[in-house]
Structure formats: structure tokens, C-alpha cells
């Protein structure tokens, strides 16, 4: 088996989000939120709808531009290049390179409908990273095998079930050999019977030590898979801790209420 992720480079957090604020007009959806994820860890963001967890996740690869605050990937500011005066400035090219190192899995899959499952997976490695095509195609099939879709490699997304599409999307993210994977409610658009196959796939990745940040409403899954859990409410962190702490001994009354409301 080839390594799923790129080599370790630095000890310390793979990603550190520092005092992220996000406002839309006069509405503030994130109030200076900080979070970090360590090598090999799984961090889950939970909380009621509208608490800002998806927005926070989307700032991690700057799909959503934070109004203020900083994202560090391997201790370097995401999408910025050092300037001669010692500071950092925005750099489009650097942002593209950094984004390639952060896998993202969308709630609505967002596969490319005109490409087969395999092509979805090898397209970016070949066209963006200029990898050897034969090798990338081979790896695409290997990754599809890993997510249990070896037989579906030539299918177009429209002919796949939601759960299958989401697993292709996971393979597509892995094909870039990311430093970490971000999941935005990966099962919210799925029927219950398809949810479990996707969750099993994600859990498999967690067991292999893939660094991940997951936004989810599946509490049993979050409890099983997380090293750290962040509970958000109204754009702020309500509580943070290990899965055991959060789910068995939540400190905050509102965390307890939120968790019991889902049972």
C-alpha cells in the first residue's frame, strides 16, 4: 500500500486557525474562533445549525475568506508568501499550492458529472500536479478500491448512488496526497442506509492516521472517531475537549442540552 498522505514535515499542529472572525455585512457569524488539529488527529466540529461550524471549516482552506484572523498550515500562513520586509503577503499561486494540500469533501459531493469516477480522481493529479498519467490512473483505481468502488471506476456520477458519489469524492481528495482532510457534513445529503458506508470509509481513514477535521451531525460517529471535539454555538466555541469529555462529562449546560436534543 502506498502512503495515503504526504510525508510528515513538522511536529506541531498541522493546521492552526487563530482568532477567526467572519462577518457578512453587519452580521457576525464567527467571533474570533481558534482551533487546531495535530498530526494524525481527528477533530470534529459539532453544534446546532447556524452555529458557524461549516463557515469555520470553509475558512480552513480559504474557500471562505476570514474577515480577520490567520490560518497556519504547518506553521506557515495559508496562501501567503514571505515578503522582503519579513511579513507575509497574499499570493494566489501559493494559495493554490496550499489548497492542493488540504483535501475537502463537500456535503453535496460536487463531483464532476462529465467525468467517470476514475477520471474525477485522477484529473487533478494529472492536470494540476502534472503527475504521470498512467501512474495517476493506477492510483485512482487503487483509491477507488480502497473506498469499495473498484467496480464502479468507469461509471458517471449520475449513475452512482449518493453514498457511492461521496466515496468517490473522498478518493478524489486523497488522490492529491493532502496533509489533512476537511469534511463538511459528509453524510447530511444522504439517505440513512448510505450514511453508514460513508462513515465507515471515514473511520477507516481515521484508523490509518489521516489527519481530519469533520463537521457532522452524527453524534455516535463523532464520539467513535474523534480525538478532539469542538462544540460551537452562535459563532463561538462553547466547549472543547476529548470525545470522552464532551460526550460523557460535558461541562456546559448548553452542551448537555444540545447533545440530548439529538438523541
Amino acid at each position: 500500500m502506498t502512503a495515503l498522505l504526504s510525508e510528515k514535515t513538522i511536529s506541531g499542529p498541522v493546521m492552526y486557525a487563530k482568532e477567526i472572525t467572519k462577518t457578512y455585512g453587519d452580521k457576525t457569524v464567527l467571533h474570533g474562533v481558534s482551533a487546531q488539529v495535530l498530526e494524525g488527529q481527528v477533530l470534529t466540529l459539532v453544534g446546532p445549525s447556524g452555529s458557524g461550524k461549516t463557515t469555520l471549516l470553509r475558512t480552513f482552506n480559504r474557500l471562505e475568506e476570514p474577515t480577520s484572523g490567520e490560518i497556519l498550515l504547518d506553521s506557515k500562513p495559508l496562501g501567503k508568501r514571505s515578503r522582503s520586509d519579513g511579513g507575509y503577503g497574499d499570493d494566489v499561486q501559493q494559495l493554490r499550492l496550499d489548497q492542493q494540500r488540504i483535501g475537502f469533501v463537500f456535503q453535496s459531493f460536487n463531483l464532476f458529472p462529465h467525468m467517470s469516477a476514475a477520471e474525477n480522481v485522477w484529473h487533478a493529479p494529472v492536470r494540476v500536479k502534472r503527475e504521470n498519467k498512467a501512474e495517476a490512473v493506477g492510483r485512482a483505481h487503487e483509491l477507488l478500491g480502497r473506498v469499495g468502488l473498484a467496480d464502479q471506476a468507469d461509471q458517471k456520477p449520475a449513475t452512482l448512488s449518493g453514498g457511492q458519489q461521496q466515496r468517490v469524492a473522498i478518493a478524489r481528495a486523497l488522490a492529491m496526497r493532502p496533509r489533512l482532510l476537511l469534511f463538511d457534513e459528509p453524510t447530511s445529503a444522504l439517505d440513512p442506509e448510505m450514511t453508514s458506508e460513508v462513515l465507515r470509509t471515514i473511520q477507516g481513514l481515521a484508523e490509518e492516521g489521516v489527519t481530519m477535521v469533520i463537521v457532522t451531525h452524527e453524534m455516535a460517529f463523532a464520539r467513535r472517531v474523534s480525538d478532539r471535539v469542538v462544540v460551537m454555538e452562535a459563532g463561538r466555541i462553547l466547549e472543547e475537549g476529548t470525545a470522552e469529555q464532551i460526550f460523557s462529562h460535558p461541562e456546559h449546560e448548553r452542551t448537555r442540552r444540545f447533545l440530548s436534543s439529538l438523541e
Binding site: 492542493q100 483535501g103 492529491m176
Partner: peptide, 9 residues
């Protein structure tokens, strides 16, 4: 967005 996160121009 899917293209963007894969680093496509």
C-alpha cells in the same frame, strides 16, 4: 469550488 480546492486555475 470543487475545482478551486483541487488547486485548479
Amino acid at each position: 469550488e470543487a475545482s478551486q480546492i483541487l488547486g485548479m486555475t
